[in-house]
């Protein structure tokens, strides 16, 4: 549906997007993830034709945004970061205006406006002046405007910023429900939102795509084979003596103990899968292994790993410590939550 090739955007001497490539298939909800200033909004603004690229090409539904802007723009419904609303208009008159702008015939306009209002549940606010609406409702009006004309592609730039928690949940559910009829590109820096809503994630940092895959695969790909978590029934001393005898175990750390089951984190000196081997070693000593698994990275940790520039350079051979990364990620998520409440 959307093909972006070698996209470059310079603002004067500043390179906001540096040769970005991405492909969005039909029916997907794709999440654009990246820290502030990574180039998410710039990329979206170029795809929608709001600004022009310095070089590179963008194909929207088979139309080049530069060569055939009208056809390409017709295929897109765009909700920018700040919804473009005329504050002096009523909800219904604004949506009628948008429908006319998008070339919906005068005969279909009332039904189209009604449909869009129903989808985002603002029918009861139809006659209200937009400036009098709450932030959440303004966001919905913006979303309704993007839905007008039933475009096959929806591009939503941080659609849940500044909403209260219940509104965030509602908007997320709404976006998920749009999947059946639309291809959706969604940008966000709220990781939980992206992992919950999207079925494909593109992580952008410093103007380039640093990773793209499903949330699960991303987590798998960037997790370490060398970090293993085990739950073993037994006492710490005997477990320690067994682990000391295994030559591929570099370090181990007891995490917790409850009802005789000890949780221990191991760091191996190999990237090979040693789960089976570890199981049999303890089985031979007649110590029941309840769990042995690779320590999976959460999306937060993957994100941090890929976007923290210092660590990004060494990501392949020197993994960040899982526990430390996790606490950093929590801090970031907390920060986001706070900023939402403040807004």
């Amino acid at each position: 549906m959307i093909k972006v090739k070698d996209l470059v955007k310079n603002y004067g001497n500043f390179e906001a997007v540096k040769g970005l490539n991405m492909n969005v298939e039909k029916g997907q909800i794709v999440g654009l993830l990246g820290p502030n200033g990574a180039g998410k909004s710039t990329t979206m603004n170029i795809i929608t034709g709001y600004i022009s690229a310095t070089s590179g090409s963008v194909m929207v539904d088979g139309h080049d945004i530069m060569a055939e802007p009208m056809a390409a723009k017709k295929a897109i419904g765009y909700l920018p970061e700040i919804p473009p609303l005329y504050m002096d208009m009523t909800v219904v008159s604004y949506l009628k205006f948008v429908a006319e702008l998008k070339g919906v015939s005068s005969k279909d306009r009332p039904s189209e406006v009604k449909r869009a209002m129903q989808v985002v549940s603002i029918t009861d606010r139809a006659g209200r002046i937009i400036s009098k609406l709450s932030k959440g409702y303004k966001q919905r009006v913006g979303l309704a405007a993007a839905l007008i004309g039933n475009p096959p592609i929806l591009i939503l730039d941080e659609p849940t910023v500044g909403l209260d928690p219940s509104q965030v949940v509602e908007i997320r559910e709404l976006i998920k429900s749009l999947k059946e009829e639309h291809t959706v590109i969604l940008s966000s820096h709220i990781l939980s939102e992206v992992s919950e809503v999207c079925d494909h994630i593109i992580i952008i940092n410093d103007g380039v795509v640093v990773a793209e895959d499903t949330p699960e695969n991303l987590s798998d790909t960037y997790s370490n084979q060398s970090h293993v978590i085990m739950e073993i029934k037994g006492d710490k001393d005997s477990i320690a003596s067994v682990l000391n005898d295994i030559d591929y175990v570099d370090l181990f750390d007891f995490k917790s103990e409850s009802e005789g089951i000890v949780t221990v984190a191991l760091k191996l000196n190999t990237d090979e899968d040693k789960n089976d081997d570890l199981f049999y070693v303890f089985a031979d000593k007649r110590m029941p292994v309840h769990k042995v698994s690779r320590e999976n990275l959460s999306l937060e940790e993957v994100f941090l790993k890929l976007t923290e520039s210092e660590e990004a350079d060494v990501v392949d051979d020197t993994p960040v410590d899982g526990a430390e990364a996790s606490s950093d990620a929590e801090e970031i998520v907390e920060d986001n939550d706070e900023s939402e409440v403040e807004e």
């Binding site: 034709g49 802007p69 897109i76 473009p84 005329y86 702008l101 998008k102």
Partner: peptide, 14 residues
């Protein structure tokens, strides 16, 4: 200022 130019310039109208 109101960012409504984003609506106009991303609509299929020259």
């Amino acid at each position: 200022k109101q960012k409504t130019d984003q609506l106009l310039l991303t609509s299929p109208i020259s």
